[in-house]
Design a protein around this nucleic acid. Structure first.
Length: 315
RNA sequence: CGCGGAGUAGAGCAGCCUGGUAGCUCGUCGGGCUCAUAACCCGGAGGUCAUGUGGUUCAAAUCCCAUCUCCGCAA
């Protein structure tokens, strides 16, 4: 049975799934992705990763500004997909789209639903210190990540995993879980499980305020925040001269109790910047100073930009 | 023409405003010392100060002009 699949997705995370569909020989008849957006210095118009890949594979690409209205409805009836796969597309699908395909719309979501519904499930799970996260495939409905669950894949979050490593592991896991889901659909063995709404939690989009490091929290909480935001967009603090300092990598020091006022630099031994937290301390292993490249903490120390006793603060 | 920072030894930086001997922390190489350390001491190598056979000047890393490259913010 060859189903006509329409793929909807935008960033790198979606690319894992699209690539696996293509490589598995599925009949991907088109890709819907967000319009090119101005990015970076000088506002260069940049295509989303999914578009770049689709064009390489000569799959038709569509970038509607909206899914509501005649235009997209017409396109949909021309393409006539049997199944729509949605992975981090970035827009809400209206009811007429959800209802169109014979086999419905399947979403690949980066959490163990009903936990972490919403925009930033991977980051939030790490930031909140979860020991594991995963992928849930679901039949989409009109709610935000509220549809019936299909299959689940789990991924452990190790102490030094960060957003990048979890993103890649879940991308991989998502691709595999998606293929399993389609296989089950085809074989008629797919079962739907309702979400328990009473257990639902939301993973709100990451805001600037989420990125400000709060050293009054425990060393582990600070570490979780920093790694959940690394390498994008990165957690930050301010040095005594008022310059912003982003922190890509840290590790938790094995120390207990309150060592000094939160944010105080305790030591520069071994090329690590040890910073006091509410309880315990963390080692800052690399930094990204304002206007500079990312560098090892040892280099930052060599340039004499920080000293024992300096206090890193919210400004 | 979105805003801003930066290009000086292998790395991170200072020096530039107020032109006049190329400096700091580290790494590296050689030697010494210690039971030992993120060790310590002594010595050395390594730079056409991004580019222009540009301008000003007795003299330019420093002031002026142009170009290239890298980065942060914002979106």
């Amino acid at each position: 049975m060859s189903m006509k699949i329409l793929f909807m997705g935008t960033p790198d995370f979606a690319l894992f799934s699209l690539r696996s569909l293509v490589e598995a020989g599925e009949n991907v008849i088109g890709v819907v992705t967000q319009p090119d957006k101005p990015k970076g210095r000088g506002y260069t118009l940049t295509p989303p990763p999914v578009k770049v890949y689709a064009m390489e594979k000569e799959i038709p690409v569509y970038q509607p500004g909206t899914l509501r209205g005649e235009e997209f409805a017409t396109l949909l009836s021309e393409l006539a997909p049997d199944l729509i796969i949605v992975v981090a597309y970035g827009k809400i699908l209206p009811a007429n789209v959800l209802d169109y395909p014979k086999y419905g719309c399947i979403n690949v979501h980066g959490s163990l639903l009903p936990a972490y519904r919403g925009a930033a499930p991977m980051q939030r799970a790490i930031m909140e210190g979860q020991p594991e996260t995963g992928i849930t495939t679901m039949m989409m409905d009109v709610g935000l990540d509220t549809g019936d669950m299909l299959l689940v894949g789990k991924v452990a979050i190790e102490e030094n995993d960060n957003f990048e490593t979890i993103h890649d592991k879940l991308g991989e896991c998502g691709a595999n879980t998606l293929l399993d889901t389609i296989k089950a659909l085809r074989e008629g063995t797919l079962t739907r499980t309702k979400q328990d709404d009473s257990l639902a939690t939301y993973a709100a989009k990451i805001e600037k305020s989420d990125c400000l490091i709060d050293f009054t929290k425990s060393a582990m909480e600070v570490h979780n925040q920093i790694r959940g935001l690394s390498p994008i967009p990165l957690a930050f603090t301010y040095t005594p001269d008022g310059k912003m300092l982003k922190v890509p990598t840290t590790e938790v020091a094995k120390r207990e109790g309150t060592l000094a006022p939160a944010g105080t630099v305790l030591s520069l031994a071994g090329g690590k910047i040890e910073v006091a937290c509410g309880t315990g301390s963390i080692f800052v292993l690399s930094v990204l100073p304002e206007g500079k490249k990312r560098m090892a903490a040892a280099d930052f120390i060599n340039g004499r930009k920080i000293a024992v006793g300096d206090v890193l603060t919210a400004k």
